[in-house]
Simulated assay, not measured.
Amino acid sequence: MLRNKRTAWTAALVVLLAVAAGVAFVGLRDGGDLEPGFVAQGSSGRPPTHEADVQLPIGTLRLSSGEPLAEIAARRVGRSGAESLEAAGDASIVPVAWTFRPTLSYDDLLGYPATFTLAVTAGGERVALGEPDVDLHQAADSGDLPGQDLIAVVAGDGDDLRVEVTYEGEKQVVTMRSGKVATGRAAALYPDGPRTYGTDPDCDARGAGEPAEIANVDAGAGSISCRIDPLTRTPYLPDLGWAREGHVWTTLTVRVTAPPTISWIPTGTSYQVRREPVTAALSGAEVARAPRGDQDDRSTWVRTWVFDSPADAPADPATDAATGLTVSAPMSAVRPQDATDGPATVPFGVDQTFTLRH
């Protein structure tokens, strides 16, 4: 399977290079000079002088560029015959390279588009570099990071070189000389990708009842528990696209477990467990995608919400903590009708407000 994936990646590169080669022929003057718009796979053979990282929802794209050149050896751009090729007029030859490193596991990347587009601008003109299609399986699991070295010819002296990276319609622009990135709606991905938050205190599935009564409840071989997965804040999700400017998508997953029946310890009577709907609220946020119950079984039910949240969540700078997550998952143990000893119902479940900690 891995070989097939590598073959697919190689094929994608071949297609990209074929397109680049077509542009290169257009960008050659009759005398052999390289016009702006020329693009070919190749390297100047010199170390890069500028580097910058661009955060995408699927990972980190590291860009590098070299000092602009007036000429380059023909063999370095796949040409034979002439020993060297020169940039036409006041144009410049610019080495550009990229490598991609996923920041999510392969399972988490499922459903994400794997393509992005690259272009460079200089001297007021734009040169398209192509649309790589990253093999996310290979990149995430094999450690073999995809990348490419390119030679582009741009207008002017190349000192104002910028690289455009576009993912699902959202463009980020990197000024290579300074390394600064105009992030647009991708700002929440910086500095290191989507942020995750844990909850404090721990979720307590027995906390919504009277302690004295809950102490007399026995789950037997089952368990009464609650877990809140780390909350993820990201500006992009495959099914919702990019969040609006100044907002992010916050994903919350709650897992509550209780057996179908529990025992009232003083009498040994078996009580039926009744579940009520699980609800959640995040202060300052609106529900963008409501939860479904398609992961439920007889003992555990799972609910996942996506909230439309402000990107600048209220936080305590000293602790990096934000408050305002409330989760309710009420349950009750119901005594059978033919039993007379013990309480008719024993309420329990989740009814908590949490602090989020990064």
Rank of each mutant, 00 (worst) to 15 (best):
V273W: 00
V273M: 06
V273A: 04
V273E: 00
V273T: 11
V273S: 03
R274S: 08
R274F: 02
R274H: 04
R274Y: 07
R275M: 07
R275P: 07
R275V: 10
R275S: 08
R275F: 04
R275A: 14
E276A: 11
E276M: 11
E276N: 08
P277H: 08
P277E: 10
P277V: 05
P277D: 15
P277W: 11
P277I: 06
P277Y: 10
P277Q: 07
V278F: 01
V278H: 10
V278D: 00
T279D: 07
T279L: 06
T279Y: 04
T279A: 10
A280V: 01
A280L: 02
A280N: 06
A280G: 03
A280R: 02
A281P: 05
A281W: 05
A281D: 14
A281Q: 15
A281E: 12
L282A: 06
L282C: 00
L282V: 08
S283Y: 07
S283C: 01
S283R: 14
S283N: 14
S283T: 13
S283Q: 14
G284H: 10
G284R: 01
G284W: 01
G284I: 11
A285I: 05
E286P: 00
E286T: 13
E286C: 01
E286N: 07
E286R: 07
E286L: 04
E286W: 00
V287R: 03
V287S: 12
V287C: 09
V287L: 05
V287Y: 06
V287D: 09
V287N: 06
V287T: 15
A288I: 03
A288W: 02
A288P: 00
A288N: 02
A288L: 04
R289W: 12
R289Q: 15
R289H: 12
R289C: 09
R289D: 15
A290T: 13
A290Y: 14
A290G: 08
A290S: 15
P291D: 04
P291Y: 13
P291L: 13
P291V: 08
R292L: 06
R292T: 14
R292K: 06
R292P: 01
G293Y: 13
G293T: 11
G293D: 10
G293Q: 05
D294Y: 12
D294I: 09
D294G: 09
Q295I: 06
Q295D: 12
Q295S: 11
Q295K: 08
Q295W: 13
D296M: 07
D296H: 08
D296K: 11
D296R: 04
D296S: 04
D297Y: 01
R298C: 06
R298E: 11
R298T: 14
R298M: 10
R298W: 13
R298L: 12
R298V: 13
R298A: 15
R298S: 15
S299L: 03
S299N: 10
S299A: 13
S299V: 08
S299I: 03
T300V: 05
T300Q: 01
T300C: 04
T300S: 05
T300M: 04
T300G: 00
W301C: 02
W301E: 10
W301K: 01
W301F: 05
W301A: 04
W301G: 05
W301R: 15
V302A: 02
V302F: 09
V302Q: 09
V302N: 12
V302R: 11
V302T: 15
R303F: 13
R303V: 09
R303G: 06
T304W: 01
T304G: 00
T304F: 02
T304L: 05
